[in-house]
Simulated scan of single mutants.
Amino acid sequence: MYLFCKISAYSLTWFNNNFGSTSFYFQCTGLYCKLGETAADAKFVVRETNVPSALGSNQVKVQVKACALSPLDIKLHEDLKFQRDLVPVGREIVGIVLQVGPKVTFFQPDDEVVGILPLDTAMSGLCDAVVINEHHLVQKPEKLSWVEAAGAIRDGLRAYTALHTLARMASGHTLLVLDGASPFGVLSIQLAHYHGVKVLASALSSEDQKFLEQLRPSVARVIGVWDAKVDLVDSCLEETGGLGVDIVMDSGVRLHEEEPEARCLLPYKHDIITLIGVGGHWVTTEQNLQLDPPDSRSLFLKAASLSFLNEEVWGASSARQGRYLHIMKDIVEKLSTGTLRPQLEDPVPLYDATVSMEMVQKNQVRKRLVIQL
């Protein structure tokens, strides 16, 4: 089914907003996730939404040129108690400013911008036009393509959050990136190498290993955990002279001996605790990580720290808004200069968005997928 935005004299209608006054809207068609009783029951559907024509004081209307697709964290929406049956899909957007609110100071019409729609947005990024607060956008450098900007902004934000904010990365550190060939892993490797960090990366397949080998000298050593003969702990300790690594970034952790086949190549939490060095930092994406008293004791003896990576935290407090914008500006600058080079699939047309998002949600797409509008 073709996604399209019906913006015409016949599609403009009047609606009452939450304050009881009258506002002007136009209808726009986007992609949404229809929640079921379980995450497996979720379906992606095309639905119409209302985009306000009258902007708030600090709002910006953006004509979307490209939108990246990332897996939807349905559990997070449930935890935050967003009472909605349809969850908007596609939050990483890039486009051209069409209109600005009366108090907007950062942008003007025709500016090219990139940003991430807030978690509680009611609009899909796959609409032809979206309304967003100016504090969620940054200027897109002229040399940076639409697709690269949309495809890298979220993974770049995650890499910055993990390495700078949580792990306090510094030149001379040794970093282990687990699943280094993932879109997040690749940008983390490039960012760490830029700052003088020695990078070790694990490969989940022979294809991933060949790809990571091509990233030298950004990657000092590739550890092929897909090969049963290769031991992750021994490889890291050998590379660091037995001292252990300073920073570990995982892509999930095995908590039990018996795990689904899709998680069989993930490291055990005990392995990570063993290979981390004194004063090291473990940044985990495992939301349900459980540490037993002996695990905590081992981390205590090493004075090591454990942090949970949740890039959505930037929207939790307005006090962090300035740093959030600074990070996004630095990401797009490094993208424009080639310091960061995202791994992207070929752009997908809008009419394939539903099928593409289903593949992304099931982790059937290895590289980051971008819809070009």
Rank of each mutant, 00 (worst) to 15 (best):
A42G: 02
K43V: 10
K43W: 06
K43E: 15
K43S: 13
F44R: 04
F44V: 01
V45K: 03
V45D: 06
V45Q: 08
V45R: 07
V45Y: 07
V46L: 13
V46H: 07
V46M: 06
V46T: 11
V46C: 12
V46D: 04
R47P: 01
R47A: 12
E48K: 01
T49M: 11
T49Y: 05
T49F: 03
T49W: 00
N50K: 12
N50L: 15
N50Q: 14
N50H: 10
V51F: 08
V51K: 07
V51E: 11
P52A: 09
P52L: 07
P52Y: 15
S53D: 14
S53L: 15
A54E: 15
A54C: 14
A54P: 10
A54K: 14
A54N: 15
L55S: 03
L55K: 09
L55E: 10
G56Y: 08
S57N: 13
S57A: 14
N58F: 10
Q59S: 14
Q59V: 05
V60T: 07
V60G: 04
K61E: 15
K61R: 14
K61Q: 15
V62K: 07
V62Y: 06
V62N: 05
Q63S: 03
Q63W: 06
Q63L: 10
Q63H: 08
Q63G: 01
V64Q: 01
V64P: 00
K65R: 06
K65F: 03
A66Y: 04
A66H: 00
A66S: 09
A66R: 00
A66D: 04
C67N: 02
C67A: 01
A68R: 00
A68I: 03
A68G: 10
A68S: 12
A68C: 09
L69V: 02
S70V: 01
P71M: 08
P71A: 01
P71K: 05
L72F: 03
L72E: 08
L72C: 04
L72V: 13
L72G: 03
D73S: 09
I74N: 02
I74W: 00
I74V: 14
K75R: 08
K75Q: 15
K75N: 09
K75D: 15
L76V: 04
L76Y: 14
L76Q: 15
H77M: 09
H77W: 12
H77K: 12
H77D: 03
H77Q: 11
E78N: 10
E78A: 11
E78L: 08
E78D: 08
E78C: 02
E78W: 05
E78P: 02
D79Y: 09
D79M: 13
D79G: 02
D79V: 04
L80G: 03
L80T: 10
L80Q: 13
L80D: 01
K81T: 05
K81A: 07
F82D: 02
F82E: 14
F82P: 00
Q83E: 11
Q83T: 04
Q83L: 05
Q83A: 07
R84M: 11
R84S: 14
D85K: 12
D85A: 10
L86I: 05
L86H: 06
L86P: 04
L86R: 02
L86F: 14
